[in-house]
């Protein structure tokens, strides 16, 4: 069973039905017992970083997630805000500490006026996967749907799996051991996103 962590941030319906569509047995939950029983986890989320961390904390989810993901090494996919929350800290609406599972900072896109680039970065952009990963599978380059104003800057670039270009390259996908994360929304990225979700359902990190 795949548990989609419900911590009150964003559209959980889309991700759960996308997982179901590719054949995953999915449950949207914030119940620690159910999270313990799950075989893999998805940390989704759209919204503000500070609110996201506050919600994880107030629902008492951080200890169980640490246990299941860091100790028991269950596969995790962090999506959008769920990717950013894995980082050390964020500068969104003030400075907030993240889960700090992956050494990284969450930065706001800053462009010069002459770049004429909008923030937020909304829409379809191309991601190039520079590394093989069981979840990306045969996808080497494809368009994915993004909607965000902040991005993850890794301390260790070796974790980058996929890069997107928006006024310069940023990490659209990283992975370490049993943790996989994307800034884009697989559940909104039509066939390529669904293909990757299918891969995630079968992923067995060693």
């Amino acid at each position: 069973m795949i548990a989609v962590i419900d911590y009150g941030m964003g559209n959980l319906r889309s991700i759960s039905k996308a997982i179901a569509y590719v054949g995953g047995d999915v449950l949207v939950t914030r119940d620690p017992e159910k999270i313990r029983k799950a075989e893999r986890l998805v940390l989704p989320g759209v919204g503000a970083f500070g609110q996201g961390i506050a919600n994880l904390r107030s629902f008492g989810l951080i200890p169980v997630l640490e246990e299941e993901i860091l100790l028991k090494k269950k596969p995790l996919w962090g999506i959008c805000l769920g990717m950013q929350l894995l980082a050390t800290s964020s500068e969104e609406f003030g400075r907030h500490a993240g889960l700090n599972w992956i050494p990284a900072d969450v930065k706001r896109f800053e462009f010069s006026e002459s770049a004429r680039l909008n923030v937020p970065h909304v829409g379809w952009n191309s991601v190039r996967f520079s590394k093989n990963h069981p979840v990306t599978g045969s996808v080497k380059q494809a368009d994915f749907y993004f909607v965000h104003s902040y991005y993850v800057r890794l301390k260790n670039d070796d974790l980058t799996v996929g890069t997107c270009d928006y006024g310069g390259g940023f990490t659209a996908c990283f992975a370490r051991d049993n943790i996989f994360a994307t800034q884009f929304h697989p559940e909104k990225s039509q066939e390529t996103g669904l293909e990757m979700l299918g891969n995630f359902c079968r992923w067995k990190p060693c």
């Binding site: 964003g10 759209v46 919204g47 503000a48 609110q51 805000l81 609406f93 937020p120 909304v122 909607v147 965000h148 104003s149």
Partner: peptide
């Protein structure tokens, strides 16, 4: 709304 759901929403 921006604080609750993020500007991009």
């Amino acid at each position: 709304a921006a604080r609750a759901f993020g500007s991009s929403t």
